[in-house]
Amino acid sequence: MNALEQQLNYPMGDTLPPGGKVQQVAPGVMWARMPLPFALDHINLWLLRDRIDGREGWTVVDCGITHEQIKACWEEIFADALGGLPVLRVIVTHCHPDHLGLAHWLCEGGEQRRWQARLWMTLGEYAWGRVMSSGDSHGSNAGGEFAARHFKANGLTDEATLQKIRERKNYYSNLVPSVPGQYRRIREADVLTIGGHGWRVITGFGHSPEHASLYCEDLNVLISGDMVLPRISTNVSVFDIEPEGNALRLFLDSLQTFEPLPADCLVLPSHGKPFQGLHTRLGQLRDHHAARLAEVREACAAKPCSAADIVPVMFRRPLDMHQMTFALGEALAHLHALWLDGELARERGDDGVWRFAPRQA
């Protein structure tokens, strides 16, 4: 546990539910932890006891990617942890593959087609997920021709790496092969009645188009999704579909929406362990990005920098190709925050690469 983590309280200790099992974290709220085949090797999913239209059952929050191991874990949960009751709805916080990937399968009741449940999402997340799942590679740092052009324009010029990125055009649709054709829209400040308790929707931006967190005042529990994580900082990237985006400013502004919540609320994040210390963590995240912005300012003052030039400034460890795509997107987000705030100017060189330097008075 690093020094920042030690400032937080982990009421569940080091106990983690194994794949295919659940652990209660609050009355009527169960925690499932599914494996992921990435460097970030798990995702937390939540099952909430519920009653809809007179039917007893469960609401599931987030799904995991489409993967046989995760399906097997869910099948074990269906058999052993739901008390013979169906899933009544599936809420997805945002469109990233580890959250949306299995929604179509969960809504249809798994391999045995046990039930038909409705998908609930914000419009921004549902629309983006539908587009990317369809195989349109435009709009994701993950891969495809548009992503390769985006990276090249921001300083990633190694042709072998760019070709690998082009070849990953089906990356998203492999993990999210289908998105339900119908959904129910949720919006900022909506209050969803789940198990007799009100859960208020808190939307956030910068990490994804219209991320939905859920706060229950009765239980003093926040399902934070990826907006507030205890151990790692949320990825905040500029994508090829919005090449002049200001993702970091959107993210930092979104953190303010969590400030009114009680200091002792139990935060249920998508990665890492449930924790208390929300306000402490919000401060840590702001400090983290302030330090990264200071590094970017210093680097650009020494010479005009592309996003690729900034990657080794912000990320001092070796990166594989997958990690590089996210690192470059995050470097660009920090450059854009300073550029759009008027601190930096950008200029496109004869080589087609955007570089940033201090704006001249």
Rank of each mutant, 00 (worst) to 15 (best):
A3D: 15
E5F: 08
P11G: 01
L16M: 06
L16S: 02
P17V: 00
Q24W: 08
V25G: 00
V25W: 00
P27K: 12
G28T: 13
M30D: 06
W31V: 02
P35R: 07
P37M: 04
I43W: 02
N44D: 00
R49W: 04
R51C: 09
R55G: 05
C63M: 10
G64V: 10
I65T: 12
Q69Y: 13
K71P: 03
E75H: 10
I77E: 06
F78D: 02
F78H: 06
L82I: 01
L88E: 01
L88P: 00
H94V: 01
H96S: 14
P97V: 10
E111Q: 11
R113D: 11
R113C: 11
R118A: 05
A148Y: 02
E167F: 02
P177I: 02
R185D: 01
V191W: 04
I194P: 03
I194A: 08
G206T: 01
G206R: 09
H211F: 08
Y215E: 15
L219F: 11
L229H: 00
R231M: 09
S237A: 11
F239K: 14
I241W: 08
L250T: 03
S254D: 07
E259Q: 11
E259K: 10
L261Y: 02
P262D: 12
P262G: 13
P269C: 06
H279Q: 13
R281V: 11
H289D: 15
V296Q: 06
I310N: 00
P312H: 02
H322I: 13
A327V: 06
L328K: 13
L332H: 06
H336F: 07
G342I: 02
E343A: 07
E343C: 05
R348L: 07
D350N: 13
R359H: 06
Q360Y: 03
